[in-house]
């Protein structure tokens, strides 16, 4: 009987040799997770940055007394196929899309400058949003974005921001808006099913400095991604630097640096 066991042991040990790897394992690359989450959050942030800088440019345009200069500024920042119309307590910007569909942005300014009274901005062009801008006692402005749609996600954001506007060129009306903001953004993607949403929550750990000329110049964000479909939860910190311009992504304690060639 002992011989049987010995023979069996020999045969069983040969199974290890007979088994073979016919396809190598893929590389384990946690950086891809950080990059994927960052690229999604970055797209959301870019959209929100544009919303805020548009408001600042719009306010600045309204301050220009010279009609021709104002029209020029409007054309530069809001496009050639755009019309401005004064209506009620504010303005309507009508822009024609590439498919000749009108896209409306309503600026309800209550006849006061940004930072001096409450503004409401409503965008109706597919990815609709409504943003209420309320001046704060410390001079900053609170942007409460109650209905926000970005690509396949919907959610809300509350951001408190201050801004600087640098006139770069009086002839061409080029200007740079520099924002400094903090707060949180929460966007829910339900494309995997109503009951299995994917939520991306972004909150500022250090106030974010953003320039519409240079992109992100400083600050730190924490991006949390919760996927109910796959039952996963990932957290990525993004810290911005300006010289040289880069973003450091921290995922599970490991830092991955992403240099920006043309701004972040």
């Amino acid at each position: 009987m002992r011989r049987v066991y010995l023979y069996l042991a020999m045969v069983l040990s040969t199974f290890t040799f007979v088994s073979c790897v016919i396809d190598d394992a893929e590389s384990r690359d946690p950086e891809r997770v950080a990059q994927t989450i960052w690229s999604e959050a970055h797209a959301d942030l870019r959209y929100i940055n544009k919303m805020l800088t548009d408001v600042v440019h719009f306010d600045h345009m309204l301050q220009i007394e010279d009609d021709s200069q104002r029209d020029k500024y409007f054309d530069i920042y809001f496009g050639q196929r755009t019309e401005l119309e004064e209506r009620g307590n504010g303005y309507v910007v009508k822009r024609m899309s590439n498919y000749d569909m009108p896209i409306y942005t309503y600026y309800i300014t209550n006849r006061c400058a940004l930072g001096e009274g409450e503004w409401t901005v409503r965008y109706e062009g597919g990815n609709d949003y409504t943003m209420t801008l309320t001046p704060q006692e410390d001079g900053s402005i609170e942007a409460d974005i109650s209905s926000l749609y970005v690509a396949e996600s919907e959610g809300s954001a509350i951001l408190t921001f201050g801004y600087l506007l640098h006139d770069l060129d009086q002839v061409t009306c080029n200007a740079e808006v520099e924002l400094c903001y903090e707060g949180s953004i929460e966007l829910v993607d339900r494309s995997m099913g109503e009951s299995k949403p994917l939520t991306i929550s972004t909150r500022t750990l250090e106030p974010v400095l953003f320039s519409d000329q240079w992109g992100f110049k400083g600050g730190k964000l924490r991006i949390e991604c919760r996927d109910e479909f796959y039952g996963s939860r990932d957290e990525v910190d993004a810290e911005f630097f300006f010289d040289p311009q880069r973003v450091d992504l921290t995922y599970l304690g490991v830092v991955y640096t992403k240099h920006a060639q043309y701004g972040i």
Binding site: A25, E152, S232
Partner: peptide, 23 residues
Amino acid sequence: RNFSQILHDASHYSSAERCWPCL
């Protein structure tokens, strides 16, 4: 693929394919 699937792919990898051809 939507973002959920892209993220899932990024956070998972395929291990080596092992074969026991014949017992």
